[in-house]
Write a protein that binds this DNA or RNA. Structure first.
Length: 474
DNA sequence: TTTTGAGTTGTTCGA
DNA sequence: GTCGAACAACTCAAA
């Protein structure tokens, strides 16, 4: 008997898992493995919130495997030596995994595949984390897409390759199990426990993922295109962290909405695909702007302002509400992500990379491809970038998407007693109103750290300058 | 090769 | 208060 190793990574589920299915089909005993290798992520090792989620997700996966008479074997360190050691220890004949598309993972996986094959193992990877591999979608010229809508259309034309796979009903166990490191020794849980707010909000694991998706489809899908822009309503699926860790597959998410309908939802799923497409074909963009002229953009180095943004103390209520929701729950509503990102990049002119780093460390759904696409889009330096003159106004965005101030009240409780009219711009409220609401600006809640109108003009100047430079250079 | 139509998510200004 | 235009070309993708 030569067991199959199934190497779990960002596919922490049993249903619709092609690598696992291949092992089942091979008919030999199966040894599920997870290897914690943060040192192989080239500066993008999972952040604190992601690690917390990973801990819970691994625990859930291990428990789930046990119900099938199997186990999850944990190891840490570099993946290749860990896999080689496991292969020797178990006499394995095959190693299967589902592909990842981040540049560091692509390169590492290539080396792993070669080395394992050279060792005489059957080393195979599968499409399990995307609907379309980055190289499956191309323009007629054979180049990668850089604009969303034609990419989306090309995806629809390509169609889905088949239905989701069933969850295996049993996994044959090996005669003896290799050692596993205890989960606690991976040190994924923080030393000082700050996870109270996150724990209240989220339950990692495949069961929870399925339940979240089911609840959303039952209640939300019909209203999705309307409610997804209202931060105080749970109009979004909140399925992103589950998708991020592969507790459900994009194919399951896609198929669940049925043949027709759910267009807005499917578009969002294709955005996720577009992010992978771009990061795969432009592998440096996690750290560098896709449009090279942006290297010369006059970004500001302002650690004090950055910190106020991070802590939700900018004096702009909708921005602060979002940043506090992020800090407390590891998540932020998508509309608010755009608002806080625009504020950091355009009002404060702080590099988008700083925002991307903060999101990376604090989001439970931190995903390198999505994060990169979103931040470069906001900054105007990426694919399909927002026009440079599109500077989100935190007051009007607040009025428009949180008209009653419900969202702000939830996350910025010191402004609780202000009316819907004043809550998005407390500095314009009269002294009497502020007094009645027990708000003393500068003490209970900060004055705005920049004047939006001035900041907007300055940002437009800087972007205009860049454009001028580009023109003269040509 | 050249041409053509189009491009996630806005804001401000002035009539 | 409401509405349309301006904002700025540029690049992409397909015909």
């Amino acid at each position: 008997m030569r067991p199959s190793l199934v190497w779990f990574r960002q596919d922490l589920r049993l249903a619709d898992n092609p690598a696992l299915q291949a092992a089942v089909d091979r008919g030999e005993p199966i040894i599920p493995i997870y290897i914690w290798s943060p040192e192989e992520e080239e500066g993008w090792a999972p952040g604190g919130a992601s690690q917390w989620w990973l801990h819970g997700s691994l625990k859930a996966l291990a428990a789930d495997l046990e119900t099938l008479g199997s186990r999850l074997v944990l190891r840490s360190g570099r993946a290749l030596p860990a896999l080689q050691k496991l292969a020797r220890q178990t006499g394995a004949g095959a190693v299967f995994w589902n592909r990842r598309y981040e540049p560091a993972a692509v390169e590492r996986d290539r080396q792993v595949e070669q080395a394992l094959a050279a060792d005489g193992l059957e080393a195979k990877s599968f499409k399990g984390s995307v609907l379309w591999e980055p190289w499956e979608i191309a323009t007629q010229a054979g180049t990668p897409y850089k604009v969303f809508t034609p990419f989306y259309n090309a995806c629809l034309r390509a169609g889905l390759g088949g239905e989701p796979l069933m969850r295996p009903s049993a996994l044959p166990a090996p005669e003896s199990w290799p050692d596993s490191e205890p989960l606690s020794e991976l040190d994924l849980e923080p030393q000082r426990d700050w996870t109270d707010g996150i724990r209240k909000e989220w339950t990692p694991g495949e069961d929870s993922a399925r339940e979240t998706l089911r609840r959303f489809l039952r209640g939300g899908l019909g209203k999705y295109s309307r409610d997804r822009d209202v931060p105080s309503v749970l109009g979004t699926a909140q399925v992103s962290p589950h998708l991020c860790f592969g507790e459900i597959s994009p194919r399951q998410a896609w198929v669940a909405t049925g043949e027709s309908g759910g267009e807005a939802w499917k578009r969002q799923l294709v955005w996720r695909e577009f992010g992978r497409h771009l990061l795969f074909h432009f592998p440096r963009t996690a750290d560098e702007p896709l449009r090279p002229e942006f290297v010369r953009f006059p970004w500001k180095d302002d650690p004090a302002a950055l910190q106020l943004w991070q802590k939700g103390q900018t004096g702009y209520p909708i921005v602060d509400a979002g940043m506090r929701q992020l800090w407390e729950t590891g998540w932020m509503h998508n509309r608010v992500r755009m608002i806080v990102a625009s504020f950091l990049v355009k009002d404060l002119m702080i590099p988008w990379q700083e925002g991307a780093r903060w999101f990376w460390d604090t989001l439970v759904d931190a995903d390198l491809a999505n994060n990169t696409l979103g931040w470069q889009w906001t900054a105007g330096c990426g694919a399909d970038a927002a026009p440079y003159f599109r500077v989100l106004n935190p007051m009007s965005q607040g009025q428009k998407f949180d008209p009653k101030g419900k969202y702000v009240r939830r996350w910025v409780p010191e402004l609780e007693s202000l009316s819907a009219k004043d809550i998005h711009e407390p500095w314009n409220a009269t002294d009497a109103v502020l007094k009645r609401a027990s708000v003393e600006l500068g003490k209970d809640y900060p004055y705005p750290i920049v004047d939006h109108a001035e900041a907007r003009t300055a940002a437009l100047d800087a972007y205009g300058q860049l454009r001028g430079d580009t023109r003269t250079r040509r």
